[in-house]
């Protein structure tokens, strides 16, 4: 463990708390992509299946339990509790364009061709692109509530902080995880446009609005 990874994981936790908080205070899931949230459930279930056979640490174990359960809870909030506030006509990104290619890529580019490794690799690739439906939805509406942008910023910071973590691990432990690194860089890159608007508008006290 190093400070970058710890802060990254904390940013990830923060993003989840912000999202749940947003839904509770506004009593709505407006502006939240159900598809992206469903993809995160799939990401966590396929990656953390090793809960049952691999022991890393209490930290690792408890975080995995938290990510699986919180993502299911969020899906429940969007799909049942606040369903009347969900507008499916705005959440139209085709997830099969993400899930299919990620699965094929996982079959081709993996560390070991077995069931658990392929699921892990699939989850890494899918996580990298799972934000697409959410970004697509914001592109369509051209705006976002401020608290939703805080959620996305924390989520982007989480993966961005993993990059210095990998650099640090390379120099201190000599470990390199090319699959995680490439996917992580792609994942972080997807946030660049968002971060630009977030920093230049939201952090200056303005509303998040995309140029028409």
């Amino acid at each position: 463990m190093n400070v970058f990874r710890l802060l990254g994981d904390l940013a990830h936790l923060a993003s989840i708390f912000i999202l749940v908080h947003k839904m509770h205070i506004t009593r709505s899931c407006r502006g939240i992509s159900f598809k992206t949230q469903a993809l995160y459930v799939l990401v966590f279930l396929t990656r953390y299946l090793d809960l049952f056979w691999a022991w890393i640490s209490w930290y690792n174990f408890l975080m995995k339990i938290f990510f699986i359960s919180s993502s299911c809870y969020i899906l429940y909030l969007v799909h049942y509790r606040f369903r009347p506030t969900y507008d499916p006509s705005l959440d139209t990104f085709k997830v099969e364009y993400l899930v299919g290619p990620c699965f094929v890529l996982a079959l081709i580019f993996n560390y070991h061709f077995d069931f658990s490794e392929i699921l892990w690799t699939f989850s890494i690739y899918l996580e990298a692109v799972a934000i697409f439906p959410q970004l697509f939805m914001m592109q369509r509406t051209g705006e976002a509530e401020t608290i939703t942008t805080h959620y996305l910023a924390a989520l982007g910071v989480y993966r961005a902080l993993y990059i210095p973590n990998w650099i640090y691990r390379y120099y201190t432990e000599g470990t390199v995880d090319p699959i995680a690194i490439v996917a992580g860089i792609v994942q972080t890159g997807l946030y660049l446009d968002f971060f630009y608007v977030y920093v230049t508008k939201v952090l200056q006290g303005q509303k998040f609005e995309l140029p028409a």
Binding site: D50, A54, I56, F67, Y111, H112, W120, N165
Partner: peptide
């Protein structure tokens, strides 16, 4: 062959 890959990151 990396048959025993340990994924210690979240």
């Amino acid at each position: 062959d990396e048959g025993n890959v340990v994924h210690d990151e979240l």
